[in-house]
Amino acid sequence: MDDLIQVSGLKKYYPITSGVLKRVTGHYKAVDDVSFSIGYGQTFGLVGESGCGKTTVGKSILRLIEPTDGQILLEGKDLRAMNSAQLRSARKDMQIIFQDPYSSLNPRMTVMELISEPMKLHNLASGSELQDRVCNLLETVGLSRIEMKKYPHEFSGGQRQRIMIARALSVQPKIIVCDEPVSALDVSIQAQILNLMKELQQNLGIAYLFIAHGMPVVKHISHQVGVMYLGKLVEVADSESIFSNCLHPYTQALMSAVPIPDPDVKRKTMIIKGEVPNLAEKQEGCLFAGRCSRCTARCREEAPILREVESGHQVACHCV
């Protein structure tokens, strides 16, 4: 079966201007040549430190940010070639959930209005049918129909995230981009939301692009994981192998920094030393070279490309 989403050569450059005439003097490469695909009903986890471009990738896929270059195929249809009417109907298949459940819901709208809004926009239902659908959605995400008339401030963080999920589900999307959906939640609530997301995936076959920096959470929910460093994908593999057998030196350092919840395990953290290169300047060679312990002369001259080293395991490193 073909993939649901295919991203190839995605780029997002921000121009750097100077002087009164705003002459473009360079580009900040927030996302540089990122390619991956997500299958139907699969979860693709995207990890990396803040500023590595993972949110930009998520938003570019939905064209909430207009990419500079690249191709995004949703079921074979090129999203970047669509006009605004076509894009609007395609958006029914793609939804997004944000990190902060406090600022992403309009405080002046009731839960009923919030959840029904996408359905109204896409003319999916009206009148009593709309109300029924909202009730069903509320029950699907574990809230009761009595909550319909309430406003967002009457709910806790976890409940608000449930409302966000209900709102995203309302148009029956094929994929939901989840940008740090549980990072602001407490452990017990985080477990509730993660279980809900897994259940929904099993029952409705939704795919997720799951963006997060908490490794255990990503491991728990993802089928495939991509690791980003400074706008580039440096490693892609299925969840199991990326956590047990990661190959890129950056991924290894990232993994070694994850605290283990066992006081008897003494882990060795690999501290990444060296300066982060300035993306506004022209870079030659591997972006991680200056901080890498296995750096060779070749790494400084030639940028490694993402290639398959084992079945389903891609790495961008000369030393692997």
Partner: peptide
Amino acid sequence: QGLMQAMPRINQQSEMLYNIPGMV
């Protein structure tokens, strides 16, 4: 005990996480 079990772990694979029902 609930907090410990609700935590996803990097060295364990589980289908569903234990969750403490309700909220604070």
